[in-house]
């Protein structure tokens, strides 16, 4: 296959997605056969575009929070001060992952109420593991000779971390963030069962009124967003890896 074909496909997907979000009525004839008894084919209880933006906002807030905590935790447990926490933090983050999203959402409701907050908590918990594990891998697999060279150049522990270890871990870290974002995009839809404003609202409205067109459009928008974001982050990762590869070779 030629290299530009996947790129063209992605571009078409992006154009389709933007067209659907801004002018959903253009697509009504396509979805009409999926409805029964003259039900509306396009979600009509709110704008798809604003729901998509709210969806992305929820995912972005949760991912940034998970990123800050996971990276800080990974830095802490790889320093001599926090080394004794390494096994425990590993098992805790793993345990967090076994909690089903629906359970986390439902249990968070009595503490923080309905709406966006329980969703943010669930997404945050789910985002932690991939970022933490990958940052840990990045920080613990920095080639020993590079760290030695930095020490030899007279860098303090703090300087080594900021100028050598963290930059070299960026590609692996980005891979973790990518995983975490894709998981969060899908999980955020479940947040609508506790009244969060996400694209899940469209799907749930479809399930409740037995309207397959709603379910399908909600699901496909989320899937398209996930595919596009996944690809964009992969490209960013390859760029970072290339840069880091050059740095490592130069050193």
């Amino acid at each position: 296959m030629k290299a530009w074909i996947p790129l063209l496909l992605r571009f078409c997907l992006l154009v389709l997605l933007i067209a659907f979000l801004t002018n959903p009525l253009w697509f009504e004839p396509l979805l009409k056969p999926l409805t029964q008894n003259g039900a509306p084919a396009i979600y009509n209880q709110g704008s798809l575009l604003s729901l998509a933006l709210l969806h992305l906002r929820t995912v972005a807030i949760a991912t940034v929070a998970a990123m800050v905590v996971a990276v800080a935790l990974a830095i802490l447990v790889t320093r001599p001060v926090g080394a004794e926490f390494l096994p425990l933090s590993r098992s805790l983050v793993n345990i967090g992952q076994t909690f089903p999203p629906v359970a986390v959402l439902a249990l968070a409701v009595p503490a923080v109420g309905f709406g966006e907050k329980p969703t943010l908590i669930a997404l945050f918990l789910y985002g932690l593991l991939p970022i933490f594990e990958n940052t840990l891998t990045g920080l613990t697999t920095t080639p020993a000779n590079i760290v030695e060279a930095a020490r030899g150049a007279g860098m303090t522990g703090w300087q080594r971390l900021l100028k050598v270890e963290l930059p070299l871990s960026v590609p692996v870290m980005l891979a973790g963030i990518r995983l975490s974002v894709v998981i969060s995009l899908a999980t955020a839809t479940i947040g609508s069962t506790v009244a969060a404003k996400t694209l899940g609202e469209v799907i749930i409205a479809g399930l409740q009124s037995n309207n397959l067109a709603f379910v399908l459009q909600g699901g496909l928008i989320v899937a398209a967003l996930a595919v596009l974001i996944y690809d964009a982050l992969s490209a960013l990762e390859r760029m970072a890896a290339r840069r880091m590869g050059q740095v490592a070779q130069a050193a």
Binding site: A186, T187, T189, L199, I203, L212, V215, G219, A223, A226
Partner: peptide
């Protein structure tokens, strides 16, 4: 990448 509630519905 298809959200679980949508796949169940589809």
């Amino acid at each position: 990448t298809i959200p679980s509630i949508a796949l169940f519905g589809i």
